[in-house]
């Protein structure tokens, strides 16, 4: 073995061009998979939203777009205020919210026990899974005519459509939550002398609860989607009705105001439920 350095000169890599892995500055907001303080996150979120609104406003004012199609945010806001005063917008929003919650609670009250049973007893799972899986893939709008034939155009049609859109999805989500409960927990309960009912109540249900609450929150969001369909098709009240009526007269600002109201209700509900989740499941 000869000394390599004598025959072949060792090349010292230039530190500026050295092909080492980039070492990002961890304090940079662009750090790959880095962290960001809560305040910074909120600030950036609000900043982006406000920025977009301003651009939109400017675009509408300058006249780059036809305001019949894209009215400015300020116009939308002022029609929203007008609608609150003259068209009972809040009342319509209240009715819609009530419908969503009634149908959602109905779906949840039925889906939770059934989902739990499906994962607790193979027979129940085997019996129900094919049916539920099939119905789950039926698009809710396609069922509108059928539900009008069955229930007419009254309140029950809307509740039924909402229920239809959430129940079958929720059952499978609940069943999944239950299936994911580690078998060790169940066995621990059994070796401590718990019977099946006690194991379900004190351990399995408790273990699945965080996942369940999360899935309820997500499903509640879907309820709003179906609500609008239901209210457009068959209603004389509710946000969907307001939007659809405004569309008929090409009152774009009012259409948008209605959409924004739904967005706001959705956002607020979602944040409230998230906060609830954080408080209730501190141990996570």
């Amino acid at each position: 073995m000869t000394d390599i350095s004598e025959t072949a000169p060792v090349t010292v890599p230039d530190p500026r061009t050295a092909a080492t892995a980039p070492r990002p500055d961890p304090s940079s907001i662009w750090a790959f998979r880095g962290t960001l303080s809560r305040r910074a996150q909120i600030g950036i979120g609000v900043g982006t939203s406000v920025g977009l609104l301003l651009i939109w406003e400017a675009v509408a004012r300058i006249g780059l777009v036809n305001t019949t199609f894209l009215p400015s945010p300020s116009t939308v806001l002022s029609s929203m205020l007008m609608m609150v005063q003259k068209q009972n917008l809040l009342q319509h929003a209240g009715i819609s919210t009530l419908r969503v919650w009634v149908a959602f609670i109905l779906a949840a009250v039925m889906a939770i026990p059934i989902g739990i049973l499906m994962s607790s007893y193979r027979v129940v799972g085997a019996a129900l899974e094919p049916i539920i899986d099939f119905i789950r893939y039926l698009p809710v709008p396609a069922l509108v005519p059928l539900s009008i034939i069955w229930f007419g155009v009254g309140e029950s049609t809307k509740l039924y459509l909402l229920w239809l859109g959430t129940f079958f999805q929720l059952v499978l989500l609940v069943a999944d939550d239950m299936r994911r409960v580690p078998h060790e927990y169940i066995e621990i309960a059994h070796t401590l002398g718990a019977n099946t009912r006690q194991t379900l109540r004190d351990v399995a249900f408790r273990a699945m609860l965080p996942g369940l609450v999360d899935n309820l929150r997500i499903t509640l969001g879907w309820c709003w989607t179906y609500l609008i369909i239901a209210e457009i098709v068959a209603a004389d009240s509710g946000i969907g009705f307001v939007i659809w009526t405004a569309r008929r007269y090409m009152k774009t600002p009012e259409v948008m105001a209605g959409v924004v109201v739904i967005g706001v209700i959705g956002l607020v509900t979602d944040q409230l439920l998230r906060a609830l989740h954080r408080r209730a499941f501190r141990y996570l």
Partner: peptide
Amino acid sequence: GMVFQSYSSFPW
């Protein structure tokens, strides 16, 4: 009584 390797205590 059983002591498992994982999921040995209840997180809640």
